[in-house]
Amino acid sequence: MYRATTVVNFGHGDLVMCGAFVVYLLVVMVGLPFLASVVLAVALLFLLGLVIELGLIERIKAGPHIGFALMCIAFGYVLRGIARAVWGREVLPMPSVFNFPPIFFGELVITADALIIFAAVGILLAAFFVLFYRSSAGRVMQALCQSERGAALVGINVRAFHGVMWGVGAALGAVGGVLLAPITLLHPGLGASFLIKGFAAMTLGGFGSFGGAVLGGLLLGLAEQLVGGYVSTKLIDITAYLVIILVLALRPNGLFGRAIAEKV
């Protein structure tokens, strides 16, 4: 979504939480099958993203960039507040996609959740790579990222594309929530706890790079576990912040990010 809209969504973590709660609501409280609930949640979050863009972000488009950040933070807090009002601060068990016991290969432990996350990320990554680099829609998105005015001049409906990309971003948040919540348990602060890790992964991989985001996430996860395992478990929480500081200081564009030259 950042590639298409150049807006860093500080409320994305709460969209992740929101998607997970929608699935919980549909599965546990309404009694719908898991897969149908996930499809419904993804569709609902797509609509929510669309509404946020058209109703909130679009209105402040002409204002300073800080307005986007504050708006994203604000709607994130609103979503978190709604979840707290309904479910309180309690942690809830989220049903898993598949529930089979972990497989042990010596010291290596492979869980169903890990396999599903790995597969889902692989599929989504491939799909978005094709979409961005091999389709005309992807070229339009890249054109929008480079110059909205230029894209509008050649007849691209900028507003519609932004709306769709916010919808897609929110829908992907729902997918993330569904995959994460069985591991972390479900609570209103779920997404916020992952937001900073997401930014650290993006900073490390390079903002705007698909492969970079995934590799950044893997490297950050590894760094956290290695620091926790070999140095001190007290340092796990600050690893993401250290990564952000180090990368910005030493390699501001991350591993795969590109410096963008702007004409002034």
């Binding site: 994460l180 576990q225 926790g228 796990i236 929480d237």
Partner: peptide
């Protein structure tokens, strides 16, 4: 003794150390 900070979502490192 291992630390598991408030708000952490994963206890892999702690569990493996223990």
């Amino acid at each position: 003794e291992v630390a598991f900070e408030r708000g952490q979502t994963d206890a892999t490192a702690q569990t493996l150390r223990i």
